[in-house]
Computed example of a mutant assay.
Amino acid sequence: MLAHYFNPRTEQGVLRLSILVTIVLGGFGIAFGLLASSSAIIFDGIYDLTDAGMTFLALLVSKLIAASSTGNTVKSKLTEHFTMGFWHLEPIVLGFNGTLLLGSALYALVNAVDSFLDGGRRLELNYALIFTLISLVCTLSMALFASKANQSIRSELLALDAKSWFISTALSIAWFVAFTFGMIIEGTYLDWMVPYIDPAVLAIVCLVVIPLPISNIRQAVADILLVTPADLKKHVDEVAQKVVERYGFIAYRAYVARVGRGRQIELYFIVPMSWPAKRLEEWDELRDQISEAIGEDTPDRWLTIVFTTDLEWAE
């Protein structure tokens, strides 16, 4: 049962395991952060719990997309209201996830600077090091696991999740080095530096983390705004132009958009009015040929091909 629920060969199985580990690690982070009087570790715990919430949303979206793409969606009010699928929810979740993580890092950076200017805070380094070691093992293991699983699954949600685990690994390494240094200098002539270790390392980590979600936010905004992907548009134009030249159509109009993992393509071919009538089976056969030429006939492709003599229907 557990092996099926956390199946590493499925997007949903990997996301479920990621949520479980993140929640446990986040709880440990907040608890050890309070014991160690470390705002950096508390931030790590809050960061993990926030990421777990976003991963849970990603899991829900993944289940909706998978259900609608395979045609096994249970008839309900929800699916009746989303007859064109749930692909558009993916960039919304990715964008919200990236924005929330970016906001958390900015807020933590402000707190770190404020704490540094206020004289810092002395840590319980034993508790800090114990948690850091636990965190390092867990985050690195999950980062490698999610990254390897996504080599065959190829999911943007898993790619973002793996990136989040690598970010957490970087945080753990930075804190381990900093806290080890603090333990070494504690009680020496450099002891005055110990209170500044926590805010300093938190500020440095935030500066590293802040740029990372920006690319995901940018891509999510482009998907939400239905910005046409240049490479896909070029490919569709090449296929459509060859069809026009081969069959003698007057012109074509192509509309292409990327929405999360979904690819939406609408093709309109302008047919000469003087053409003799064709059977519907012949038009369908031509559609099949165009579809094959475009390629990537997966459940995540929404392809519409229309033949009309009226240009207004295509514009």
Rank of each mutant, 00 (worst) to 15 (best):
Asn150His: 04
Thr298Met: 08
Thr309Ser: 10
Arg301Lys: 14
Ser274Ala: 09
Glu80Thr: 15
Leu123Lys: 03
Arg16Val: 04
Ala40Leu: 05
Thr50Met: 06
Ile23Tyr: 02
Ala314Arg: 13
Glu266Leu: 11
Thr22Ala: 15
Trp313Ser: 05
Val236Trp: 05
Ala36Pro: 04
Ser172Cys: 05
His235Gly: 08
Arg16Trp: 03
Gln12Asp: 13
Glu312Asp: 07
Leu226Cys: 12
Thr304Val: 10
Leu202Asp: 04
Phe56His: 07
Ala257Cys: 08
Met84Cys: 05
Tyr268Cys: 15
Ala108Asp: 02
Asp118Lys: 03
Ile167Lys: 09
Asp288Glu: 13
Thr308Tyr: 04
Val201Trp: 01
Leu89Phe: 14
Asn126Tyr: 03
Ala251Asn: 15
Met273His: 11
Arg121Val: 02
Trp175Glu: 07
Asn126Phe: 07
Glu266Asp: 06
Lys148His: 13
Ile46His: 00
His235Arg: 11
Gly103Asp: 02
Leu280Ser: 12
Ala67Gln: 12
Phe6Met: 14
Thr298Ile: 14
Arg301Glu: 06
Ser18Gly: 15
Ile270Gln: 13
Thr83Lys: 10
Ala146Arg: 08
Ile197Tyr: 00
Gly262Tyr: 02
Thr188Tyr: 02
Ile185Lys: 05
Ala257Gly: 12
Val61Ile: 05
Phe6Val: 12
Ser164His: 00
Arg246Ile: 03
Met183Leu: 12
Ile185Val: 15
Leu117Gln: 04
Ser141Thr: 14
Val74Glu: 14
Glu238Lys: 14
Leu2Asn: 10
Tyr189Pro: 06
Leu140Arg: 05
Arg246Gly: 10
Leu267Ile: 15
Phe145Tyr: 15
Arg218Trp: 08
Arg121Ala: 00
Gly187Asp: 09
Ile217Tyr: 00
Met1Cys: 09
Leu125Pro: 01
Phe166Thr: 12
Glu11Ile: 08
Leu109Ile: 00
Gly33Asn: 03
Leu286Trp: 06
Glu315Ile: 05
Arg9Cys: 09
Leu34Trp: 04
Lys75Asp: 13
Val74Thr: 13
Tyr107Ser: 07
Arg261Gly: 12
Leu144Arg: 09
Leu117Ile: 13
Leu160Cys: 02
Thr70Trp: 08
Glu292Leu: 11
Thr10Pro: 07
Glu238His: 12
Leu144Val: 15
Tyr127Trp: 11
Val259Phe: 04
Ser164Gly: 04
Thr139Cys: 11
Ser274Leu: 09
Ile250Trp: 05
Lys233Asn: 10
Leu144Trp: 10
Val271Pro: 02
Ala143Thr: 14
Ala257Ser: 14
Ala67Pro: 01
Val256Pro: 07
Thr304Leu: 07
Ala174Ile: 06
Leu157Gly: 07
Leu78Asp: 01
